[in-house]
């Protein structure tokens, strides 16, 4: 009897997959570069508190006048409150990354099951949930997020929830359309012919075949969530000023830019841009890799 190989560890699957990415052309490289950017941003934010030269929230660490331009002691300059911009850049991504991760998680938890159920059950359930989701979808995203965040108040979880409400319809629509296709495929009928329950067919035959599409939507949504989170903080609906946050630095920098203090808004802006770019690259790369098509 040959050896029975039922499960391989996650890592064992992941590492050969990573190596093969380099052989998949531009899409593979996009994924690698994107994940590189995202991972180094996350690493920087996690390790930031240990490396930052000053306490990012302490005021007046530099002697007046503030804001002072980049100099030897303060490589990225200081802001109006005399806080060190380099320290704020190193630590300031955590809110944004947490909000993005949580909002994508919320989208998963809400969008995927509702999409699965609606399309599998069909009929009235499907119509009503499609109607609700479409009405969310039709609303301008940032305006909706601002309205909900204003209702729920400050905090990472509340920000994440208000962003999730905006993006749940994308998940729902993707899952629903995929299930509608997959549930007509012969292997789901074959599963039923072997005595599988509806629930089993849905969770073990349909869901695993939808996952690649959900992953693509999720990675593309990360970038949107980052930008929406920045937008929420920019209009003053972020977390308190006692937490370093790039979004809040943007708000401050906007007021200082006319007087020529470009460094207060430029550096956090670049960081947000990079993070969004990283997620976009991963998303676009994965969507190309996971969509089957003929080799040239």
């Amino acid at each position: 009897m040959p050896k029975l190989e039922i499960k391989r560890s996650f890592l064992a699957r992941f590492i050969p997959g990573l190596a093969s990415l380099t052989k998949r052309g531009s899409a593979g490289w996009m994924t690698i570069i994107g994940s590189g950017i995202v991972l180094s941003m996350v690493l920087m934010t996690v390790l930031g508190p240990w490396f930052s030269p000053y306490d990012p929230t302490a005021i007046n660490v530099s002697p007046p006048p503030n804001p002072s331009p980049p100099s030897g002691d303060f490589p990225l300059g200081t802001n109006l409150l005399g806080q060190d911009m380099l320290s704020r850049i190193l630590c300031g991504g955590s809110v944004m990354i947490q909000v993005a991760l949580l909002s994508v998680l919320f989208c998963f938890i809400i969008g995927v099951p509702v999409g699965l159920l609606a399309s599998y059950a069909g009929g009235m359930i499907d119509r009503i949930s499609t109607l609700v989701m479409d009405s969310f979808y039709a609303f301008p995203g940032l305006v909706l997020a601002i309205a909900i965040a204003a209702m729920m108040g400050r905090g990472v979880v509340n920000m994440a929830l208000s962003i999730a409400v905006v993006y749940v319809p994308s998940y729902f629509r993707m899952v629903r359309s995929q299930v509608l296709t997959i549930k007509e495929l012969p292997y789901t009928e074959a599963a039923r012919a072997t005595g599988a329950k509806g629930q089993t067919v849905l969770l073990r035959y349909i869901l695993p075949n939808v996952v690649p599409s959900i992953v693509v939507v999720a990675t593309v949504n990360f970038a949107d969530a980052i930008l929406t989170a920045a937008g929420l903080t920019f209009v003053g609906l972020g977390v308190g000023i006692d937490v370093p946050d790039w979004g809040w630095d943007l708000t401050q920098g906007r007021q200082l830019l006319p007087s020529g203090s470009w460094w207060v808004i430029t550096f956090p802006g670049i960081m947000i841009l990079l993070l969004a770019l990283g997620f976009t690259l991963v998303g676009e790369g994965l969507s190309e890799l996971l969509t089957p098509r003929l080799e040239r």
Binding site: L4, I6, L185, P186, Y187, E189, A190, A191, R192, A193, T194, G195, A196, T200, R204, Y205, P208, N209
Partner: peptide, 29 residues
């Protein structure tokens, strides 16, 4: 179904779940 009556479908190319190994189909059944 499956226990007293077995069913073989027309199109073998799409009658197996593409994301599951052959063994998993049997375990499931």
């Amino acid at each position: 179904r499956g226990k007293n009556v077995g069913f073989v479908f027309q199109d073998p190319m799409t009658s197996l779940n593409p994301v599951k190994k052959v063994g998993a189909h049997f375990i499931e059944l």
